[in-house]
Design a protein around this nucleic acid. Structure first.
Lengths: 200, 200
DNA sequence: AGGCAGCTATACCGGTCGGTATAGGCGGGA
DNA sequence: TCCCGCCTATACCGACCGGTATAGCTGCCT
């Protein structure tokens, strides 16, 4: 009677720490960090609350671990690899991001970008969590700068910055229900490439 | 001793209802709606909690009122008027949005976009609050479509959608600390205009 | 003078927040 | 066999959550 949601999809396998992180990833990604309490988290992970606090000093610590995992799984494993596999020409790789986004946005359980959710729910600019998000956005930026440079852009840093704004803008638009956001962003991106003297 | 923050900047003037809405505007805009409880709100407004619940059935109701006020003050009074005053040529008006954003982002107390904050903190797509945000974003879109059409764009709806993504993207980028986001977005926007056969 | 509407203050409700204390179960290594 | 390290379960802490009940004050209308 205590917690009806405790045992649903308990992510049973793995040691407790792994179960905690996996559960945090699912719940924080979907609902943000403010909406999920530590009791809910421990219950869903099938783990005692004390175990959680043995591995992480505070909830903020766990949130930071979640953000690291998000960079590992989303940025590196998903985005980076998919973009490199999708094409050989760097300019096409940049455009490929939006093709990737297009199928992402059309997933019925599309839940937006965890980095942006966490960024916007923290009003203190000095807070460690918000600082960490800035770092993770910077990691994505570095990837974009690299691609822009490989593509031979005149101003790789500028193109990367504009590209990232377009990415974030269409992620939010898709979250607001605009399912074709990625396709329109891709078209806009193509114009930016031309302005940099590139063609896909 | 009960509430040290109760009387700081109590927005003293006006009837209770106006004080509530003004306080909600300040607090929700800066911190989001999840971070601000009704006790804090009533305390800061210098109003009894019962008075608050006499004017609004629930906190969600108050949030909806806050969003309406945000559209009134931010979208209509601020954005719309400023853009119309800034220039006569519609294409220049579109670009003027980012010039307006540039000074907005450089305010030391820049607090981002309340619509986006509220949108991202609500994970249920059916929730009335999230539905309301979609409506407010649509209002901004309408303004953009109008400007794009006046400017003679070949595809006003498309240009408006891309423009809004650029706007949201640079709002978020600025929130992450990128102070020159608006200037770069403006440059990107100029390329989109050229692609539509327009010149500023 | 009476009355009523609007507001205030205070206390309360069950539930959840992040975080801690305590005691016991269970498995592996010596 | 005994112990120790890791985990569990449960209860607790003060604070806060959204929302309600009650009683009293104040000012305006008649």
């Amino acid at each position: 009677m205590t917690m009806p949601s405790s045992r649903s999809v308990p992510s049973r396998s793995g040691d407790p720490r792994e179960r905690i992180e996996r559960t945090a990833y699912e719940l924080f990604s979907r609902h943000g960090t403010r909406a999920i309490g530590v009791d809910t988290l421990a219950g869903r992970a099938g783990v005692a609350k004390m175990t959680l606090y043995k591995h992480y000093r505070s909830k903020d610590d766990l949130v930071l671990a979640f953000l690291r995992r998000r960079e590992e799984l989303w940025t590196r494993t998903w985005l980076q690899n998919a973009v490199r596999d999708r094409s050989r020409k760097p300019a096409a790789r940049l455009l490929g991001i939006f093709e990737l986004f297009d199928s992402w946005f059309r997933k019925p359980d599309y839940e937006g970008c965890a980095f942006l959710k966490v960024l916007l729910e923290q009003s203190d600019p000095q807070h460690p969590v918000r600082t960490a998000v800035r770092g993770h956005l910077q990691a994505i930026r570095s990837l974009l700068v690299e691609l822009a440079a490989e593509a031979g852009a005149r101003h790789p840093a500028r193109l990367a910055q504009q590209w990232q704004m377009l990415m974030m803008g269409c992620i939010v638009a898709a979250y607001a229900g605009e399912r074709n956001a990625a396709r329109e962003a891709r078209k806009a991106g193509a114009f930016l490439l031309r302005a940099e003297g590139l063609r896909a």
